[in-house]
Simulated assay, not measured.
Amino acid sequence: MTEQEVRRYLRQMKEENSEQAFHGFYDLCYDRLFRIAYYFVKHEEWAQEIVLDVFMRLWEQRAKLPEVKNIEDYCFILTKNASLNYLEKENRHATLSTEQLPEPTDRADSPEDTLISEELFARYVKALDRLPERCREVFIRIREEKQSYAQVAEELDISVKTVDAQLQKAVTRLKESLLV
């Protein structure tokens, strides 16, 4: 996602009420926002619903979006908050028997640990977005979707060695981005 492309779409959405620009913005940002929502809710259907709600909100706020200084962070926070709100709503509606309740843990994460974890995840998502498309696709399929090298090679019509090379390239670049 390049800042220039996003800004162009946001301007068109505001000035022209352009649904076409909105679709371009959607295509550019959907995968990233889906990964953020999925990180929090751990359910594909819930994450999809959350991201669609976030995009509805963005469309409704299209007149204000060009003034947002960091649209990437703004979208991250919107998606994170929507995910946490969704989880809270789901937890309120869930009726758990005592057998289904999780065992209490000795130590809950401190607010500082939670904040550090969320900041690190945000940096990871940004670093992942900066990878070349094929590299990112291989990394996501193997590390997040748990596909085998052979499965990825077959689906992308590339060799297993290419899959391995792309994965190593992705890991190296992600390490460099995250350790800065």
Rank of each mutant, 00 (worst) to 15 (best):
Y30N: 02
S83R: 03
P102C: 03
L96A: 11
Y9E: 00
E72S: 12
E60V: 01
S117M: 09
K175V: 07
V125I: 15
I116R: 15
L10G: 01
S18R: 06
E44M: 07
Q100R: 13
S110H: 09
L115F: 12
R8P: 01
A94S: 14
V163Y: 01
L167F: 05
K146E: 12
D53R: 09
R8L: 14
R62S: 03
N81S: 09
E176F: 09
S148V: 03
E45G: 06
E88H: 14
A122W: 14
E44A: 14
I142H: 00
T172S: 14
E49Q: 10
V41N: 06
D164V: 02
Y149T: 02
Y124T: 05
V54D: 00
Q20E: 15
S110A: 05
Y39A: 05
Q166E: 11
D113V: 04
E3H: 10
T79V: 05
A153N: 04
A150E: 01
A127M: 10
F22C: 04
K175H: 15
V180D: 12
V54K: 00
N91R: 15
H23K: 15
K169S: 11
A150H: 03
V163G: 01
L115R: 15
A63C: 04
M1N: 07
R143K: 12
T79F: 08
V6Y: 05
E88V: 04
S83W: 03
E112V: 07
R141H: 11
M13V: 03
E15I: 02
R62L: 02
E3I: 08
L65F: 00
D73G: 14
R7F: 06
T98H: 15
E67K: 09
T114G: 12
E15D: 14
D27G: 11
N81A: 08
R57G: 07
T95V: 14
M1D: 02
V41I: 06
K80R: 15
D129Y: 10
Y74C: 02
E118G: 09
D164M: 10
R173G: 05
A153P: 02
G24P: 06
A122F: 13
V180E: 15
F40M: 05
E118F: 08
A170R: 00
I77A: 08
H23L: 14
R143L: 10
D164G: 05
E176D: 07
W46Q: 13
S83F: 06
A108D: 10
